[in-house]
Amino acid sequence: MQNQNVAYDSKVEGEIIVTQADAVINWIRKHSVWPMPMGLACCAIELMAAGASRFDISRFGMEVMRFSPRQADCMIVAGTVTYKMAEVVRRIYDQMAEPKWVVAMGACASTGGMYRSYATLQGVDRIVPVDVYISGCPPRPEALLDAMIKLQDKIGRERAVKNLIPEKADSAELAGAGKES
């Protein structure tokens, strides 16, 4: 156990482990991140490569890609987000259960990238809160793995109950009330 707060002595405690709730809950969460592949453009190809045998994202405990937002807790936005698609991205984000995280993969998802255009959202952080940004056009699978490990570190440092309490009443309302969802 890495956590300094764990004090376990089998002779004294028997089969009881004493720790902090945050340490246990975050340890569980960070080793079972279930990504939602929001593949919108060519970055999604690198995302697929990261999931395949050569780069093997399952080495780090996050290989369970789920195409239903109800079963995922980390949205990987891989590709160009157009204004037409922005509505869908936000709605899918709203449908994911708390706690949830967002990774902006590549230049387009982070800033709009080379698409300085009337049709392209200039960074997905304008509509969803982003935890980790990845540079590159597209980023290599190693960059995605590095970002996911950084996300794990970030999850490990959070307060475990933080995401369970809605920050604003209206955001909680929106999460349950998508258009015909």
Binding site: Y83, K84, A86, E87, R90, R91, D94, L121, R126, I127, V128, D170, S171, L174, A177, G178, K179
Partner: peptide, 13 residues
């Protein structure tokens, strides 16, 4: 305005 009113309201985008 963004095409979806509720998303525009929630995000201010």
């Amino acid at each position: 305005p963004l095409p979806a009113d509720d998303v525009a309201e929630a995000t201010g985008a």
